[in-house]
């Protein structure tokens, strides 16, 4: 476990702001949270169950009635605000957790992988159903095919106004550019 005591702290004057990074397994959520976070990213597990998480310790129980899923968590302190980044899988079976995570979030950055574009549909469904503002970043892998963004937009059936860009999840500058595109989009929506 990372030592909390060596971490920098924010002040209580900072406004906490939540951003969610969603995408299928292996798309680069952990990587991008790591590229953006000022703290060593925390990898926690969420217990998903309808009831009883408070009273039932399910460790060692054979008939597993809960699902756990890994969440990547990072922090980025800016003047006046502190961004909390949640990297969450976008499977429909995580609906309950998903609803709670996106509540009050500034927006969602959806990460897509053009080698497995079909796996992004479930994530986009969740985002659309939640009615949350989002942008899509294609994480470019060395062996990713070079599709023009317009065909990716078509394949994902994105609204023409939804920001779509290519990013390198390992590169902090590229990761930040994706966040900036998302927040600019949210600002336009709020102002319109």
């Amino acid at each position: 476990m990372a030592s909390a005591l060596s971490d920098s702290r924010v002040s209580a004057e900072h406004i906490p702001v939540k951003l969610v990074i969603a995408g299928p397994f292996g798309v680069g959520k952990t990587t991008i949270v790591g590229a953006l976070s000022e703290i060593k990213p925390l990898n926690t597990e969420e217990v998903l169950t309808q009831a009883g998480t408070l009273v039932d310790d399910l460790t060692g129980v054979n008939e597993k009635t809960t699902t756990t899923t890994a969440i990547d968590f990072g922090r980025l302190t800016l003047p006046g605000v502190v961004l909390y980044l949640f990297g969450a899988p976008g499977q429909t079976r995580f609906q309950v957790l998903w609803d709670e995570l996106v509540r009050g979030a500034l927006g969602v950055l959806v990460l897509a992988d053009t080698r497995r574009i079909d796996e992004s549909f479930a994530v986009l469904d969740l985002v659309e159903n939640a009615g949350i503002r989002y942008a899509v970043a294609v994480n470019h892998f060395p062996d990713s095919p070079d599709y023009p963004l317009e065909s990716v937009r078509q394949a994902l059936d994105l609204d023409p106004r939804t920001p779509l860009m290519v990013c390198d999840a390992r590169d902090p500058a590229s990761a930040r550019a994706s966040l900036i595109a998302l927040v600019e989009h949210v600002r336009e929506l709020v102002l319109s």
Partner: peptide, 27 residues
């Protein structure tokens, strides 16, 4: 303990958005 709660509204506050944008751009 005391807490600082995140903004409650679903529609983000424009001032918060500007803070986030300016902060990210300045990094």
């Amino acid at each position: 303990l005391l807490t600082r709660d995140p903004p409650a509204t679903d529609l983000p506050d424009i001032e918060i958005l500007e803070l986030v944008l300016n902060g990210l751009r300045a990094l």
